[in-house]
Structure formats: C-alpha cells, structure tokens
Simulated assay, not measured.
Amino acid sequence: MLNQIDLPIWLSMIISIVLLDGMIYLQHVMFHALTLLWRLHRMHHADLDYDVTTGARFHPIEMILSLLIKFAVIMVLGPPAVAVLLFEVILNGMAMFNHSNIALPVKIDRWLRYLIVTPDMHRVHHSVINYEADSNFGFNLSLWDRLFGTYQAQPIEGHQGMQIGLHQFREPKYLTLPWLLSLPFLGQVTDYVINRHKGDG
C-alpha cells in the first residue's frame, strides 16, 4: 500500500508505526475473543505477579502466530524497513515498561496515558475480573483503547486490592515451565472468552 503512494520517508515511517501498533491491538483482542487463541494467551495471564518478566511470558506457539500475522501485515502495508525495525524496538521496550511494577506519580501517569500505555493502565487488563481483563489491550499507543471503547481508567478494587492472574490457575505448580507450556491443552475454556462470560465471580 505505502509503496503505491509517494510520501516523505518520515511520514511513511510514522504511518507505518501507528498502523503496525493498531494491528498489535487488534491481534491482542483476537487472542482474547477466540477460544483456540485464548488457550495460547492464557500463559501470559497466568502470572500471579505483575512485573517486567510478565511482558516476555508468552507461549512459543503464540509467538510464532504473532510473527506470521506481523509478516502478513508488513507485506500488505509495505512499510520502510527502518520503520519495521524501529517499531519492534518500541514495541518490545514498551511491553517491558507497561508490564513493570513501576509506580508513576498520579499526575505523570494521567498525562502519559493520553499518548502511551502506562503500567497502571495495562495492569487493569491482568485482573481476574472478566470485564477488567476485557479492557486496556494496547501495548504502546493508548489511542486504540479509547477509540474502540476498551479503555478503563482504574480497577474497581484499586491497584493495591486488585487480584492478578486467572481463577483456575492459582496453584504454584502452574507457574513452572512444564505447566505453563501445557496450559493451552488443559481443561475446557468455559470461564472466559470475550462475549462468552459466565460471570465475574
């Protein structure tokens, strides 16, 4: 697409980074909406703590699928190679940042949220409460959650009171590597998939 339009390189790069970020948002929603994909994504949400390591905790199969989706989008979009490289650096850096347990001052957090996803903003997405897990899907730019109505400012129990993780995987054994890798194949998915909730208890 972008190869068919004569744009300055700086504008092409900005458009590419923004659209690739939008693709990551939609992909994340898809991994919550489809039962088969949610099985894979549960590994990321099974973490009972919330720190920078959570940002790298993804099932290998999910990582491969994510890579294939990105390849497909890049082929259709035709972004400059430097924009793809810059996007990957930003995305991975922001994933570490917004999964960290940094406590930003409230005023700074509030202002940063107008542009980027902060740790407090994304932490809501890791709540055990279903409708909170259905919010704040963004990793980098916060505009997508605001644009598509998935933004939630704060958890109902507050950040100190909210419970992280998944209801059915709270035993310590589920945090070991063999169990984490087997999560996609465990049990039935009846407790949580977007638009298939049985309740938030």
Rank of each mutant, 00 (worst) to 15 (best):
Q4R: 14
I14N: 02
V117N: 08
E157M: 08
I108W: 01
L166R: 04
N140Q: 11
I108Y: 00
T190L: 06
T118L: 11
I116K: 09
L112I: 12
Y114R: 10
M30V: 08
P79H: 03
P8A: 07
G165E: 09
N3Q: 12
F148T: 14
Q163T: 15
E132M: 06
I61N: 03
T54M: 09
S127Y: 08
L48F: 08
N136P: 06
L37Q: 04
D109C: 11
V18E: 02
L166W: 02
L26G: 07
W144R: 13
L7M: 12
M30N: 05
I164D: 06
F169I: 02
V73S: 05
Q152H: 03
N140P: 02
P8W: 01
T53Y: 10
T53A: 07
A133T: 15
P155H: 11
M63T: 12
F87C: 14
W38S: 09
N130K: 08
S142D: 04
G161M: 02
P105Q: 11
Y114G: 15
M63V: 06
I24P: 00
L175D: 14
H159V: 00
L166M: 12
P178T: 05
A46Y: 01
S100F: 13
S100E: 10
G138M: 04
A95D: 08
L183I: 15
V117D: 05
I5N: 01
I102C: 03
T150E: 09
R196A: 12
S66N: 09
N136L: 02
A103T: 14
I64M: 13
M96D: 06
M121G: 08
K70S: 11
Y174C: 06
I17V: 15
A103Y: 10
W10D: 04
H59T: 11
M13K: 01
N92L: 11
V29Y: 15
H126G: 05
L115R: 02
P8G: 01
H44C: 12
I64D: 07
G165F: 08
P79T: 03
L177I: 12
A33T: 10
T54D: 02
H44F: 02
N98M: 14
G187M: 05
V29H: 12
A81L: 09
K107Y: 00
L37H: 03
E132H: 07
I116W: 02
V117K: 05
Y151I: 08
L40Y: 00
L68S: 11
I116F: 09
L180G: 05
Q152E: 10
L175Q: 15
W10P: 02
G165M: 07
N101W: 14
W144D: 12
I14A: 15
I5E: 01
